[in-house]
């Protein structure tokens, strides 16, 4: 037998040799991401469908989803409107302090979330800079009844924190699209007699829509998972302002690992669905690119 035929069987079993960057990428992703995700999913699957469904849909959990998702959605939509406006102003107009305001947009990415929660809770408390306008027995506060409008330690406060942390996304997704938008088309619309209103809705807005929606989805996804700032500004009471991430922590503190795993799995699936949706939106935004 010649040496070449000897080596033949072993070469069939040889793993294709990968370069070091490949090996490091695959190993690190496996250790950090795939194994932990699999561990949680397997733990969930051992519980059985009945237990899973019961834990995932008990009253406290349902109320927590309600607070988490509805509040996040409202916060993301508010930022959809104001984020687009801010992006527009930053791209199209020149004014003093423009660069400063542009840099400030990223503040929620840079400021640790526990600091954000701390300062928001105090700014919106009854004696805080904004909160005191809405306290009981003030002109603005009495519009909302004799108690005034408490913001910190209510669901409204959770919303404020979510608006804060999800703000930069829409601005940063819309800005590049707006920068590259062709102004000639707008001028053509004006020349053909379109009003400002028509120009905006018919010419400027449609190409921006995918990036606005991407930004809203990114902001929503971030707000849904947010813990640091919301746990501090909320009173964390079930049925009132308890959000799903805080519920997971509360379950862990009570050694209810089953409950924590189930809610965690539900949240993981929702995050993955949102990630998929965001990818679709981004693909839609790039549909005319080459």
């Amino acid at each position: 037998m010649t040496p070449s035929t000897l080596s033949k069987p072993s070469s069939q079993w040889r793993i294709p040799s990968l370069s070091w960057p490949w090996r490091i990428t695959i190993t690190y992703l496996s250790l950090m991401l795939f194994i932990p995700v699999t561990a949680m999913l397997l733990k969930s699957s051992t519980l059985g469908w009945d237990v899973f469904w019961q834990e995932a849909t008990n009253e406290v959990a349902l109320a927590a989803y309600d607070v988490t998702f509805i509040t996040s959605l409202i916060a993301a939509l508010i930022n959809g409107v104001f984020g687009t406006l801010v992006a527009w102003v930053l791209v199209r107009y020149n004014f003093p302090l423009k660069r400063f305001l542009d840099a400030v947009v990223d503040l929620p990415f840079a400021l640790p979330t526990s600091v954000a929660g701390l300062t928001l809770a105090s700014v919106y408390s009854d004696n805080g800079w904004v909160g005191h306008f809405f306290a009981a027995n003030t002109p603005l506060g009495s519009l909302f009844g004799s108690e005034g409008l408490p913001i910190s330690f209510t669901r409204l406060g959770v919303g404020v924190a979510m608006v804060f942390i999800s703000f930069p996304f829409v601005v940063r997704t819309v800005q590049p699209v707006l920068t590259e938008a062709d102004v000639d088309v707008e001028e053509a619309a004006w020349c053909l007699g379109a009003s400002q209103w028509q120009t905006f809705w018919r010419v400027i807005f449609p190409p921006l829509l995918p990036s606005i929606l991407t930004g809203i989805a990114l902001g929503f996804s971030r707000a849904v998972g947010e813990y640091g700032s919301t746990v501090i500004i909320a009173s964390n009471l079930p049925f009132k302002d308890l959000i799903a991430p805080v519920l997971i922590i509360q379950q862990l503190e009570q050694y209810n690992y089953t409950g924590a795993t189930v809610i965690g799995t539900v949240m993981l699936f929702i995050s993955l669905i949102l990630l998929f949706l965001i990818n679709l939106l981004q693909a839609w935004g790039r549909r005319y690119d080459q």
Binding site: E226, A244, S271
Partner: peptide, 9 residues
């Protein structure tokens, strides 16, 4: 996209 709390969990 995953909540930090879920990551910790």
């Amino acid at each position: 996209s995953v909540s930090p709390v879920v990551a910790g969990l």
